[in-house]
Design a protein around this nucleic acid. Structure first.
Lengths: 229, 229
DNA sequence: GCTAAAACATGATAAAAATCAGCTGTAGTA
DNA sequence: TACTACAGCTGATTTTTATCATGTTTTAGC
C-alpha cells in the first residue's frame, strides 16, 4: 500500500532520509522490510553485526549496554522517527548497544547497502547523517556530565523530565510505562534506590504515581532539583 | 616552510583530512593558521561559536564541561592528530565543551568555510568525518556506562590506563602530567577522594607516583580492578 | 633564597547510596 | 481458584563517597 512507500513515510521528516534523492529513496523503499516487534522482544544484541539500520515507525526501544557488574545501563530510548544502528553501519563495526522494545513497535529495516551507496554518492545525505550524529554526541556528552556530577536524586528528576518527552495521557501519566528496574537502569542506580526516590518524590508532590503509571506533577520543582537548587 | 603545508602534514594520517582532494587540501592549507598555546591557556570556551576546527599538532588539551555544581567534568583529552570543535562546526551550533591546554601545544586552526565546502562536495571526506564521529560516539557510550556503573576506585584504575595511552617516559611515568584536581575531573569525583585512591594504589603497588609524576606499575591488576575483579 | 599561593595529603565526620532481608501486592497460568 | 513468579516496597545495615578541617609540601614569582 501507498503509505508503506518511503517517499510518503511520515517518519522521514524526523531523520536523515529526507536528504535522499528520489532514486535513492526508491532503492531504500524497494529493499526495506517492515517488522512488528512485541514489547520485551529484542531487536539486536550488543556485539551483533548489523545488516542495516532500523527506523522506528511506532513504539519505543531501549538502547542499553551491559556493564561488567552485570547491570544494564540504558543509554537512550529511541522513538518514532529515530534511526537505530546507524553508528554501527557507518563505522562498519559490531554494534555497541542492545535494543529491546519497551512497547509494541513497528520498525523499518533498511539494508546497509542502500544506505552505504547513498553515503558514498550523496554528500547532502551524508552531511545530514553527520549532523544527526553530532547531535547524538552532544547529548552523550551531557549525559556523561550528569552521570558523573549529579546525585542519584538529581538524575531521577532528570529521568522523569526525560520520560515526559515521550508523551503523556490526559491525566498526565507517561505514555511510556517503564518498570522500576528499567528506570533504575536509565538513572544508573540500584532498583531499591529508584523505588525509594519515586516514593519520596510522590510524597513531596513532585510526581504522580499509581502502580506502573507515572507522571510529572510539578515540573518546575523537578527541574530545580535536577539543576541542584 | 614545507612542513607547514597540510599536504605534507604528518598529522593528517590520523584524521579525516586524508580524504580531501588536492584542491581541497590546498584551500585548507592557504586558509589555516598555526597557533602556539601555552599550558593552562584556553583554546575555546563552552558556548563559543567556533569559526573553525583545531587540529592538534603537538601537546594535549582537555575538553571539559562545567556542571551545575561548579565542577568541571573532563570529557576527553585530545592529542596529536585529533581534531577539536568539529561537532560544533558540523552541527553549526555553539560548542558544548571548553578546551584548555594541559601541556604546551601547537595547533592548526582551520576556518570552517574550507571544511564546509568540502563537506558539501566530497562524500569521501564527509564519510570519513562521519566515521570519526561514530567512533567518538561509541567511546562516549562507553564512558556513560563506566561513569554510571563503576565505583570511583574502578574509574580511577581506568583513568590510569587511559593516561598511559598518551605515552610514558623511560621510567614508566606518564608523559602527561595532570594535577590531582584534573584527574578527579576526569574520574568525576572529589579531589580528596582521587588523592586518597592514588595513595592507596601506590601502597598496593598498582601504580608509581612521585609528586606530579605518575605511572602504571601493574597493568594487569589495574585492569582487573577496573573490570571489577 | 624567601614568601605567598597553590597543590597535595590525611584524619574525622557526615551524607549518600548500595546491599541484604523480608514482606506485600499483582499478573500470569495451570 | 489457587499457585507461582515477579515487581514493588520498606527497614536495617554496611559500604562508599563527599565534605570539612588542618597540616605539609611544592611551585612560582620576587
Amino acid at each position: 500500500m501507498e503509505e508503506s512507500r518511503c517517499e510518503n513515510c511520515i517518519v522521514r521528516q524526523f531523520n536523515a532520509l529526507r536528504a535522499m534523492t528520489k532514486e535513492e529513496l526508491k532503492a531504500v523503499s524497494d529493499s526495506k522490510e517492515t517488522r512488528t516487534i512485541r514489547k520485551g522482544e529484542s531487536l539486536f544484541e550488543e556485539g551483533d553485526k548489523l545488516g542495516g539500520v532500523m527506523c522506528v515507525r511506532n513504539g519505543v526501544s531501549k538502547l542499553s549496554k551491559l556493564s561488567a557488574n552485570g547491570k544494564d545501563q540504558i543509554v537512550k530510548l529511541a522513538t518514532k522517527g529515530q534511526v537505530m544502528g546507524q553508528r554501527s553501519v557507518v563505522a562498519e563495526e559490531a554494534t555497541n548497544l542492545s535494543a529491546v522494545a519497551v512497547s509494541d513497535m513497528e520498525v523499518c529495516f533498511i539494508p546497509k547497502d542502500s544506505i552505504n551507496s547513498a553515503l558514498h554518492k550523496n554528500p547532502d545525505f551524508t552531511l545530514e547523517v553527520l549532523r544527526h550524529m553530532a547531535h547524538d554526541l552532544r547529548e552523550a556528552d551531557d549525559v556523561i556530565v550528569n552521570m558523573s556530577q549529579k546525585t542519584v536524586k538529581q538524575r531521577m528528576a532528570e529521568a522523569f523530565l526525560y520520560l515526559q518527552r515521550f508523551g503523556v495521557d490526559e491525566d498526565g501519566y507517561f505514555n511510556l510505562r517503564l518498570s522500576r528496574e528499567d528506570i533504575s537502569n536509565v538513572v544508573g542506580t540500584a532498583t531499591e534506590s529508584a523505588i525509594r526516590i519515586i516514593s519520596e518524590f510522590k510524597k513531596k508532590g513532585l510526581i504522580i504515581a499509581s502502580g506502573k503509571r507515572l507522571g510529572v506533577k510539578d515540573e518546575k520543582k523537578l527541574r530545580d532539583l535536577a539543576e541542584g537548587f
